[in-house]
Design a protein around this nucleic acid. Structure first.
Length: 864
RNA sequence: GCGAGAGUGGCGGAACUGGUAGACGCACUGGACUUAGGAUCCAGCUCUGGAGACAGAGUGGGAGUUCAAGUCUCCCCUCUCGCACCA
């Protein structure tokens, strides 16, 4: 064995070995329990960053651990390869999105291989390849046939910069989530998936995902946003038309004094038509529609509206209610109409005060009666009904149902449930995405592409147009086609492409049979591998990606393609990798290599000015606070890099980067290496100790017990909570203890056997974490490779049996002394020993104990 | 504003169902070995007082429950994340 640890050699050797033996290739094996471990696949942006390293290291440890536990482990990797950055890069670098993407995949693949992850690379999936997206197109056709995919003209969030449509969840505070520019409203024909049909089911199943973090489930529930209420119908004055509203407070209907319609509401223009208010209404609607959600979503926007000139009638008391159109009424929630009850809703209250509308309290709280003129805020709590005719005196909660029932009996309302969740808009006016397989015929209208014509291949010889616009609509060879229904030659292909969240909604199923040609996936393979047993990824995907995947799985189920409902049994969301940002007053943010010196005296390498240290935040290219894993790989190797990522913090926590920590990990591996090298000759022919603990001298028995204790702790830490940091600590403790023996002096007897047991255990326990290192040690210990084929060690309970106990002695709850007794000492004797203890007596000072509490095997507390 | 989570040494972090606070590592200090070391080994390392034995305080702040609280309850402060005119 080489006396020096040389990670570069070791890692190259074992990566070659694994590769040649195709050791990570897996196939379905009904005889063995399966374990599907999945990490979120990366967007091929160019380079692996520390966030990926952390995510994939966590996954790899679990995959290797489960494998040693005897599971048939599926651990695949692939590329989420469609998307806008490829287009942006293509424009910036005058290349083609495809070329850029494939080059990045190549480069990042090499980095992942360098880290020694145990992927079955034969299953690599790349979503921008026609063999992949053709099945997405195929499913689109199935969904279209069932009405699950449809097209409608709608207001969409439009990003001028990106020239594309964004889903609601891709708009953050009115800004585009990608480029940060304001989003405005535009009316376009768009394709949608009817995810709202599954709103209730998706919500309900949140309760059946015990393996998911509570935080993520809460976000999903909030996103779906179920609320119970009623739809109520208000007749228009002098008309047969009605306005339907959704309200969660039907109990307050007697207090409804006006009506607010969303500016986009179809009735608004009709109501104002021919009235003096018409111009004002039109101006208002135009103005709000332009700003719409981009500004309307922002808090604190002044509530404003205009009177349409029309009135409707309150169905309970016949009150004439003026109809307004108001900027806070949203067309896409409920029915786009709000029955306004200023006494009991804050927005309505503000609006009423602003426009001098009447406030009528109908729910009276305990104590002071509500006096409209004196109110400074709406009362939103519970109370007793007033001003509500025959319902007066009832608790408002009861009146809720009673009033809804009354209106229902008159055909003017019904109980209903409303959701915040909207249908999933999947149309993108972009080039680098999967084409939507539809054809528009001047005579037949929307016509689906015949299945036999799939895939509709994205033409890769096209170039992006000015400003990054899609070339597809102008590419006659692509866009012009024959209508499959009537044969006319002047039909046009749909030139929108699909949201990339569609690809990531089923890639985990494709991994099960990546080369399957007869369908999306081989049903038998999916039946064997799915669902994913453990999914690991960043918390930033807590809502969109996970919700869409859950939905898509339900669609596949409706089609009879899978028989599961939930794709991911357990979910681990790992924290972000953070680092302080460094900036120069003149040159702005600096990369670490643009800084000279260390500690307080760091300076800008270009101008020599002192560097300004910014706050610790998520690593990002824009802040330049990034660490390139390649540097670490060159200096320390893959194993140290992996070790550090795991040791620094538990997975769910954010991790602040620090170079010193890496040194610590490297030192530890060197220590283990030296320890093994020093003992190697002495233990070469020994077998791991297998005898009774009682037969060992004290120092060896301690090592024996510590070894088994460590096996137990590491197993639990990995199995139960993925706390690799404490697992590694435990191994460090064992190594430290082993270091107290000296190979020259402590030899003979069972020493070699115990040392061998300890060293083999250390090697096995580290195998998932630092796999190359462990393979090398395992081979040096005389074993045939691979250590991956060795079963995970099991602890021996009899090794952990203690003969002596440490009992802590407290006086009035304060630690005063310690006592070591043999385990079979009876309670009375321990208490007596405690009371007789010299230090204890000093603190009791002769006072007689009021109470003596004994906690078995732990402590004695004497109360005086 | 609503929802979720978190506050522990100089730092990252340990502490199972209430029972020895600070495991493990980093940094730092002293020493050993050295031509040298940013290698390795040994020792120390929460704070205050004390040469020391030892004593007191201590898990964001304040109350409480308990023989016993980092852990449970209530109030407050700070931070992070998510959502936000949802009728």
């Amino acid at each position: 064995m080489d006396p020096r640890y040389n990670p570069q050699d070791v890692e190259a050797r074992w990566q070659k070995f694994w590769n040649e033996r195709r050791i990570f290739k897996v196939t379905e094996d009904p005889a063995r329990p399966k374990y599907y471990l999945l990490e979120m696949f990366p967007y091929p942006s160019g380079k692996i960053h520390m966030g990926h390293v952390r995510n994939y290291t966590i996954g790899d440890v679990v995959a290797r651990y489960k494998r040693m536990q005897g599971f048939n482990v599926l651990h695949p990797m692939g590329w989420d390869a469609f998307g806008m950055p490829a287009e942006n890069a293509a424009i910036a670098n005058r290349t083609h999105p495809a070329r850029w993407t494939y080059a990045n995949i190549e480069a990042m693949g090499r980095q992942l291989k360098r880290l020694g992850f145990s992927y079955d690379w034969d299953r690599e999936v790349t979503t921008c390849r026609p063999e992949y997206y053709r099945w997405e197109q195929w499913l689109f056709l199935k969904m279209y046939a069932k009405g699950m995919a449809y097209r409608k003209e709608s207001f969409v969030n439009w990003c001028e910069t990106c020239q594309t449509v964004l889903a609601n969840e891709q708009v953050e505070a009115g800004m585009c989530w990608r480029c940060g520019k304001p989003v405005r409203q535009k009316k376009l024909w768009q394709w949608f998936f009817r995810i709202t049909d599954f709103a209730e089911d998706l919500l309900e199943y949140c309760a059946r995902l015990p393996g998911w973090p509570e935080k993520v489930l809460t976000m999903q529930k909030n996103w779906i946003g179920r609320s119970e209420g009623a739809e109520l119908r208000f007749a228009l004055e002098n008309s047969h038309e009605v306005i339907t509203v959704f309200t969660t407070r039907p109990d307050t209907i007697f207090g409804a004094t006006f009506m607010c319609l969303a500016p986009e509401h179809p009735l608004v223009a009709a109501l104002a038509a021919g009235r003096p208010e018409e111009t004002a209404v039109r101006e208002f609607v135009d103005r709000v529609a332009l700003q719409d959600r981009s500004v309307r979503g922002v808090e604190g926007l002044e509530k404003e509206g205009v009177f349409t000139g029309a009135y409707c009638l309150n169905p309970m008391n016949g009150r004439r209610m003026p109809i307004y159109t108001a900027n806070f009424a949203l067309m896409e929630y409920g029915t786009g109409a709000v029955m306004s009850v200023p006494a009991h809703d804050q927005r309505d209250f503000d609006f009423a005060r602003k426009y001098a509308l009447e406030i009528v309290p109908v729910v009276q709280p305990e104590g002071e009666p509500l006096e409209p003129a004196a109110m400074t805020a709406a009362y939103t709590g519970d109370g007793t009904m007033v001003n509500s005719g025959e319902f007066d005196g009832q608790p408002n909660r009861k009146a809720k149902e009673a009033i809804t029932a009354r209106l229902a009996s008159r055909g003017l309302g019904r109980s209903t449930v409303s959701y915040r969740l909207r249908d999933w808009g999947i149309s993108r006016q972009r080039y680098w995405g999967a084409p939507i397989p539809m054809i528009h015929c001047p005579r037949c209208g929307e016509v689906p592409v015949p299945e036999a014509d799939l895939p509709i291949v994205l033409p890769e010889d096209a170039n992006l147009l000015e400003g990054g616009r899609s070339p597809l609509p102008h590419l006659e060879a692509f866009a012009r086609t024959r209508c499959p229904a009537c044969g006319a030659s002047d039909a046009r292909r749909e030139t929108d492409t699909m949201d990339t969240f569609v690809e990531s909604s089923w890639y985990f199923e494709r991994y099960c049979s990546p080369d399957y040609h007869a369908g999306m996936f081989d049903p038998a393979a999916v039946a064997y591998w799915m669902p994913v047993d453990q999914y690991i990824g960043g918390v930033e995907h807590a809502v969109m990606h996970l919700l869409y995947s859950r939905y898509y799985t339900r669609v596949l189920r409706e089609m009879g393609l899978v028989d599961i409902k939930e794709p991911f049994t357990r979910l681990l969301t790992q924290g972000m990798v953070c680092k302080e940002s460094l900036a120069c007053p003149t040159h702005g943010f600096l990369f670490p290599e643009e800084v000279e010196g260390g500690g307080e005296g760091r300076t800008c390498s270009r101008c020599g000015q002192a560097v300004v240290v910014g706050r610790v935040e998520k690593m990002s290219k824009s802040k330049k606070n990034v660490v390139d894993p390649n540097d670490l790989l060159e200096r320390y190797g893959a194993d140290t890099t992996r070790l550090f990522c795991l040791f620094a913090a538990p997975p769910e926590k954010d991790l602040e980067w620090s170079e010193q920590g890496v040194d610590g990990g490297f030192r530890f591996l060197n220590r283990v290496w030296r320890l093994a090298a020093d003992w190697m000759d002495l233990i070469a022919t020994a077998a791991p100790y297998d005898g009774a603990p009682q037969d060992l001298p004290e120092n060896l028995r301690e090592i024996f017990a510590k070894t088994h204790g460590t096996i137990r702790k590491v197993t639990r830490d990995i199995e139960e909570r993925f706390h690799f940091n404490t697992a590694i600590s435990a191994v460090m403790e064992l190594v430290n203890l082993l270091g107290t023996l000296e190979p020259g002096r402590d030899r003979g007897g069972p020493t070699a056997s115990v040392v061998r047991l300890a060293l083999e255990s250390v090697t096995l326990l580290l195998a998932p974490i630092v796999p190359h290192f462990a393979e090398e040690l395992w081979a040096a210990l005389g074993h045939a490779p691979s250590i991956l084929e060795v079963p995970w060690p099991r602890h021996r309970d009899d090794a952990l049996v203690q003969e002596e106990l440490l009992v802590v002695l407290q006086v009035n709850g304060k630690l005063r002394s310690r006592l070591t007794v043999s385990v079979d000492t009876p309670e009375d004797e321990i208490k007596a020993l405690a009371l007789a203890d010299e230090k204890v007596r000093k603190f009791t000072e002769g006072r007689s104990p009021r109470q003596v509490i004994y906690v078995r095997g732990k402590l004695v507390n004497i109360v005086v």
